[in-house]
């Protein structure tokens, strides 16, 4: 029996050398190790015929053979499988990756967020108000006299004589000042409407962001300081700027701020970026804030023009076309 075991081991070793792939190895397994018919398994079957005294010795040898053959088999199997696996990796690595499309915010919102983020860092809170406004909030409380030509500055969509689509975000100022007491530091973004024919330069609606600060000791110098700091952060530290006198019924003194715009390959020019001023005492009186005690400033800027400049867009309509080829660019 011991000889038989030895022969089997020798035969196994001889066969083992000839194994070159997984298929050969499987044949080897069936020949020696398969349950019921494998040569090694069969030897275990013959164990019952061995004399009782020899049984431990033979059993031990048989076990060793089993362990030996199994180990050799496992070793080769692992080797071949690794080879097969690595050969499988010859699959085309240049196949396209499985991409996922990530969406994006509209660039107007991206631009708006960029602006509001700057002011939020300076303690401004964000407020919003209705788009369908009353004449009171949009004009009257903001010191626009009835039948005053100042109303012509903003072509208005009317709903009724007393209700309209807000022409600027300034009515939110009135709402904020009515609902809160100073100190106030508010930022008011939103959609506004002007009855202007749709063209490359104008659209019937656009976005604005408005700022309002009310406290004791707020001055024109602080207004300038804040807006200059904003312009430097948004347009670059070195951007040339200037303040010009202007007119808005709800601020006095009123100003417009220009920055120098230098498009590539074209002559540079001053570009108006925002309107601003000290809150008119009449507006404060309208919301029960004592103008002797409190002063404040307000400013407002258009988002579309800012975004168009920033991204080099020359037709405002493309912003509202929502063409996917446009949306996916930002």
């Amino acid at each position: 029996m011991i000889n038989k075991i030895e022969d089997t081991r020798k035969n196994f070793d001889d066969d083992l050398v000839k194994v070159t792939n997984l298929a050969d190895l499987e044949e080897l397994r069936i020949k020696y190790l398969s349950r019921g018919q494998g040569l090694v398994s069969n030897l275990f079957g013959s164990l019952k015929d061995v004399k009782k005294d020899d049984k431990p010795k033979v059993g031990q040898a048989l076990n060793q053979l089993k362990i030996y053959t199994q180990a050799k088999y496992d070793e080769l199997k692992e080797k071949f499988e690794t080879e097969v696996n690595s050969s499988k990796q010859i699959i085309d690595l240049t196949l396209p990756g499985r991409k996922r499309e990530i969406g994006s915010k509209h660039i107007l919102i991206q631009t708006l967020n960029e602006i509001t983020d700057i002011f939020k860092g300076w303690g401004f809170s964000v407020y919003e108000g209705p788009e369908l406004e009353s004449d009171y909030y949009n004009f009257e409380a903001l010191n626009f006299a009835p039948d005053h030509p100042a109303r012509d500055m903003q072509d208005t969509f009317f709903i009724t004589e007393k209700f309209l689509l807000r022409t600027h975000t300034s009515p939110v100022q009135v709402r904020v000042m009515t609902e809160n007491k100073p100190p106030i530091r508010a930022l008011m973004p939103g959609k506004v409407f002007r009855n202007e024919a749709i063209s490359a330069k104008s659209y019937c609606l656009f976005h604005q962001v408005e700022g309002l600060v009310i406290d004791t000791d707020i001055t024109f110098a602080e207004l300038k300081g804040t807006l200059v700091a904003f312009a430097k952060l948004f347009y670059g530290q070195e951007v040339p700027y200037r303040f010009r006198a202007s007119f808005f019924p709800f601020t006095e003194p009123s100003a417009e701020m220009d920055v120098w715009w230098q498009p590539k390959g074209k002559p540079g020019r001053w570009l108006e970026i925002l309107g601003c001023g000290m809150v008119d005492p009449n507006v404060l009186i309208n919301v029960d804030i004592d103008p002797e005690k409190y002063t404040g400033y307000a400013f407002g800027m258009g988002i579309e023009r800012t975004a168009m400049r920033k991204y080099g867009i020359d037709d405002i309509r493309i912003l509202f076309d929502n063409d996917k080829r446009f949306l996916t660019q930002f």
């Binding site: 300076w122 303690g123 100073p182 100190p183 106030i184 530091r185 600060v213 406290d215 000791d217 707020i218 001055t219 110098a221 602080e222 300038k224 300081g225 804040t226 200059v228 700091a229």
Partner: peptide
Amino acid sequence: EINKITIA
């Protein structure tokens, strides 16, 4: 331009 702001 005053660069110091009062924060509410």
